[in-house]
Computed example of a mutant assay.
Amino acid sequence: MEIAVVGNSEFILGFRLAGIQKTYAADSEDSLVAQVTKAMDDRDVGIIVLKGEDMQKLPFRLRTTLSESVKPTVIAIGGETGGLSMRERIKRSVGVDLWK
């Protein structure tokens, strides 16, 4: 399983430098929806990382699908994300609590 990062060029740059290979640049709301959908359709992706504010820009139906998704698990970083914490999302995805 791989980690995918979706966001604007500045957001994904740090992840690229950290060694994440699956990055999807989205500099407009239309391309954001397309890139998130592309990442969700990739069977090798287990975790998708988004900015919290980008998550809020997505259409309601897609946002609901992402927040309820187990594989891939979607993690929104920063901002007001609501829903489950990162710990709970990883626990749901992996099946065990890694913090214990």
Rank of each mutant, 00 (worst) to 15 (best):
60 F>N: 00
97 D>F: 10
40 M>P: 03
75 I>T: 12
63 R>Y: 05
87 R>A: 15
82 G>T: 07
28 S>C: 06
32 L>H: 10
89 R>C: 04
23 T>P: 06
9 S>R: 12
13 L>G: 03
50 L>M: 04
58 L>R: 05
60 F>G: 00
85 S>Y: 01
74 V>L: 04
88 E>H: 09
99 W>H: 08
35 Q>M: 15
1 M>H: 03
5 V>F: 05
34 A>F: 08
13 L>H: 08
67 S>M: 15
37 T>Q: 15
71 K>D: 13
3 I>S: 05
24 Y>R: 03
74 V>M: 06
85 S>N: 08
93 S>T: 10
93 S>N: 12
59 P>S: 00
10 E>D: 05
74 V>D: 01
72 P>N: 13
32 L>W: 06
47 I>A: 05
43 R>D: 09
54 D>G: 08
93 S>M: 14
50 L>N: 01
1 M>K: 02
72 P>V: 11
84 L>T: 07
13 L>E: 06
19 G>C: 12
79 G>M: 09
93 S>V: 01
41 D>L: 13
60 F>S: 07
6 V>L: 02
12 I>L: 04
94 V>A: 14
94 V>I: 15
26 A>K: 06
93 S>R: 15
43 R>F: 01
60 F>L: 06
50 L>K: 04
12 I>H: 02
22 K>H: 11
57 K>I: 05
51 K>M: 11
14 G>Y: 00
48 I>A: 04
19 G>T: 07
57 K>P: 08
41 D>W: 00
47 I>L: 06
37 T>L: 12
21 Q>D: 14
51 K>C: 06
51 K>Y: 03
48 I>E: 02
38 K>F: 03
15 F>E: 01
80 E>S: 10
59 P>C: 00
3 I>P: 02
66 L>H: 01
11 F>P: 04
56 Q>V: 04
21 Q>L: 13
12 I>T: 04
35 Q>A: 14
